[in-house]
């Protein structure tokens, strides 16, 4: 059995229905633990006060906002190369989730920035990149909605996703060049391993990141299932019209 056998919608649905209860429970447990721990049981930062608690939402949401686009990029590529419908539908299903994650990152960031930087919004490279990412999500979803034929829609949105990815990276460097910015650097550099966050904050943050990841996976599986069913309805209706 290779992974491609799950490109069959029936098999995919069967697997996703089997896996989903575990995913939802795990996501709920992680999110509840991480957020409650973070909200009730972590100390205040000596400079940021209690606003440090916003990190448990802001960082995981931002992480998933980027990962969602990355996932869409991969599933779009799979659709273009191997033409598995499930893959294209998964990309479609992930876009609104990514959009909401981006929105959460932007909103929590603005609320945090107000007392800390003294402004809701700053044209800082990271903030600006996220705003651009938000626009990319909007455009991607609008294109899906606008095209009648589902296969053409999948094709065009996939190409848009590829081209958009290139331009998103370009924009990232362009705005970095354009304004140096206020946003602190990453607190958890994976490559060097030198964290600047102490364990008191890091452990609940890690749990929240896992929780957001699981929530994303569960949501995308569920929404992909919905899309597969909608597509099946369409096929059935089309077949009936032909036989009538």
């Amino acid at each position: 059995m290779s992974i491609w056998s799950y490109a069959n919608p029936v098999k995919f649905l069967a697997l996703s229905i089997r896996v989903q209860p575990f995913l939802w429970t795990a996501a709920l447990i992680c999110l509840a633990t991480g957020l409650i721990w973070g909200f009730f049981a972590t100390p205040d930062d000596f400079r940021q006060g209690s606003t440090v608690k916003i990190i448990y939402l802001h960082v995981p949401a931002a992480l998933m906002a980027i990962n969602a686009w990355f996932m869409m990029l991969i599933t779009s590529l799979i659709w273009l190369v191997r033409r598995h419908h499930v893959s294209a539908l998964a990309a479609k299903a992930a876009a609104p989730v990514g959009l909401v994650m981006t929105l959460i990152a932007l909103i929590t960031g603005a609320i945090w920035g107000q007392p800390m930087w003294g402004t809701w919004w700053e044209w800082d490279p990271r903030l600006t990149s996220f705003l651009i990412l938000f626009l990319f999500y909007l455009g991607y979803m609008a294109l899906w909605e606008a095209i009648e034929d589902p296969d053409t829609a999948a094709d065009l949105t996939s190409v848009l996703c590829l081209v958009g990815s290139v331009f998103a990276v370009l924009s990232r460097y362009a705005v970095q060049f354009w304004n140096q910015g206020l946003h602190q650097g990453t607190s958890i550099p994976v490559t060097t391993g030198a964290r600047t966050v102490s364990d008191v904050f890091f452990v609940p943050l890690l749990i929240c990141m896992i929780g957001f990841g699981l929530l994303f996976a569960a949501l995308v599986l569920y929404r992909t299932g919905t899309e597969i069913r909608l597509r099946r309805i369409r096929a059935l209706r089309a077949r009936m019209e032909r036989t009538l």
Binding site: I132, G139, L160, G164
Partner: peptide
Amino acid sequence: LLVLPLYVPTLVF
């Protein structure tokens, strides 16, 4: 909506 985000790098530089 599709084109304007793609214009960002060009506009910036």
